[in-house]
Amino acid sequence: MSDALLSVSGLTRRFDVSKPLLNRVIEREDRQFLTAAADVAFEIRRGETFALVGESGSGKSTIAKMIVGLLEPSEGEIRFDGKGMDFASGSAMRALRRRFQMIFQDPFASLNPRWRVGDIIAEPIRTFGLLRGAAIGAEVGRLLDLVGLSASDAEKFPHEFSGGQRQRIAIARALSSKPEFIVCDEPTSALDVSVQAQILNLMRDLQDEFGLTYLLISHDLSVVRHMSNRIGVLYLGRLVEVAEAKRLFTEPQHPYTQMLLAAVPDLALSGRRRTPVTGEIPNPINPPPGCAFHPRCPHVMDHCRTDAPASHPTASGEAACHLLAPSRAAAQTAQD
């Protein structure tokens, strides 16, 4: 527990998706809520890369936004370096914000097109008052150099750069406030594979050099496999499994993880016939009762339809599935 840089517990976020009041009165409907994240708990250790994977709508980005303080959780707690995040206090949040940064998916949207690259990178330095005067320019040059661009690029505008170069600029900006923790939300999904390789290698080098901790959000399982130490699998806003990266891919415990892994097309040409995932992710406004995955689960049992499964420890993490309950596992072993 002591080496956890960030820990979240009971993290829940509901969005109000009700119709307007008049419609509700006329149509006799209740308020409706979409639960984007439900009782999510995990911790990220100092210096590691923790990844969150899941399909669209599984709550990956919602969790990332809550962690960097862009969204307030409905319930639950986020602790950063031992201190609880206090959304009510502006000054406390501001002090914390210097220590974590975010890299977004779309480098075409995340850089202000009317600012010069130098100003974009210098903004966090100025905002947090880290440096003054000419030192800022020198620091911007150093950061550009660090991410593989040249110091003279500070004079240019974002449109003069390709997608990969823009993502380098976004990384330089994220590094400028000397953060310890960076949330990377799909950092390479807008890029081509050869550029993706450059960015992933750069992220690794920077992590080694500055001891950064990453939270990586991605739907690309091979990127996640390559980059992370531990992985959390999300389904409908619920964390169904957490495991060490290598273990997750060799011994997935939760049926959903198994299904997801079996579905990924891979270069390995193992000749295996992929097991296609059956069904689709249900509507998060009315998630299925019990285990949210039960309508698609090949091992569904009666109590999956009524009782939400608790998290059970596995070889390298935990998984929320009735199959893994100690009594059940023991019965299984006895049968075998």
Partner: peptide, 20 residues
């Protein structure tokens, strides 16, 4: 091919093609 991360590889770094 070297730039694509796969589910089975063990290499620490991806091969990268310089430039674009």
């Amino acid at each position: 091919m070297g730039a694509i991360p796969t589910l089975t590889q063990t290499a620490d770094r991806l091969t990268q093609i310089p430039g674009s």
